[in-house]
Amino acid sequence: MTDDAYLFLVDDPAAPLGAPATAAGDLACLETPAVRAWLDAHGVTAVSPNVRLLPPEETGAIPDGAEKLPVPLDDDELNRLRHALMPGALARVEEELLAYRDCAGERDALLARAAAAGVPPHRIVELTGEDPRTVASVAARGQGRPSDPGPRQR
């Protein structure tokens, strides 16, 4: 396995292997001199239905003898590529997971803002469903106090 995704050419545009190179949106690698030269050498453009892209974990599926080129993708580009390769239902669930991650990443800041605004900790717990110890810990950090680790196990 490689750490790079691969651009490659398929003979039949109806082949289900990989995603069209543009399916993952604008990719920085498509504007590099190396990729431009590779595309020119094969007489295709990035929007050609014969130009496909696979993420690193799937490059073993590229047929032997296929014209291919390793291309680096950043994390966002790689996520978009993987998303483009998924069936619709799975892609929707992944979108929900990403939305959760984005929301959960802001959790501590939101809890701290609520505590600083004067929302009582028990109400924050009721509204968020967070553990009372988590709310107390975040609220204490927001006020510059050491957090209370909660009840101790003996």
Rank of each mutant, 00 (worst) to 15 (best):
144 G>F: 00
85 L>C: 05
22 T>E: 06
129 G>M: 04
134 T>N: 08
103 C>H: 14
9 L>D: 01
130 E>C: 15
141 R>G: 04
139 A>L: 06
121 P>C: 14
151 P>H: 07
42 H>T: 06
56 P>H: 03
115 A>S: 12
96 E>D: 14
15 A>R: 08
52 R>T: 02
70 P>Y: 09
54 L>G: 00
48 S>F: 03
90 L>N: 12
76 D>T: 12
19 A>P: 06
41 A>C: 12
139 A>Y: 00
60 G>K: 08
86 M>S: 13
127 L>C: 09
17 L>H: 04
49 P>W: 00
87 P>G: 08
77 E>C: 13
44 V>R: 12
24 A>T: 05
111 L>D: 00
92 R>A: 10
140 A>W: 03
128 T>E: 03
121 P>N: 11
139 A>V: 11
113 R>F: 07
84 A>C: 14
154 R>G: 15
137 S>H: 07
121 P>M: 03
141 R>M: 11
141 R>T: 11
8 F>K: 02
117 A>K: 10
55 P>K: 01
35 V>M: 02
55 P>V: 08
81 L>F: 09
65 G>I: 05
135 V>W: 00
34 A>S: 09
102 D>R: 14
82 R>C: 10
102 D>E: 10
99 A>W: 14
44 V>K: 11
135 V>Y: 00
35 V>Y: 02
148 D>A: 04
55 P>A: 07
88 G>H: 15
132 P>H: 08
42 H>M: 07
104 A>L: 14
72 P>M: 01
6 Y>Q: 04
116 A>W: 05
49 P>S: 13
147 S>Y: 05
75 D>E: 12
67 E>L: 03
138 V>Q: 01
46 A>K: 08
23 A>C: 12
32 T>K: 14
34 A>G: 07
83 H>D: 09
98 L>W: 10
68 K>A: 15
147 S>T: 08
46 A>M: 15
24 A>G: 04
94 E>D: 12
83 H>Q: 11
65 G>A: 06
124 I>H: 01
90 L>W: 08
62 I>F: 03
9 L>K: 02
105 G>T: 07
91 A>S: 12
139 A>F: 01
58 E>V: 08
31 E>Y: 13
51 V>I: 08
70 P>G: 09
50 N>H: 10
48 S>W: 04
104 A>Q: 13
131 D>E: 11
31 E>P: 06
130 E>G: 01
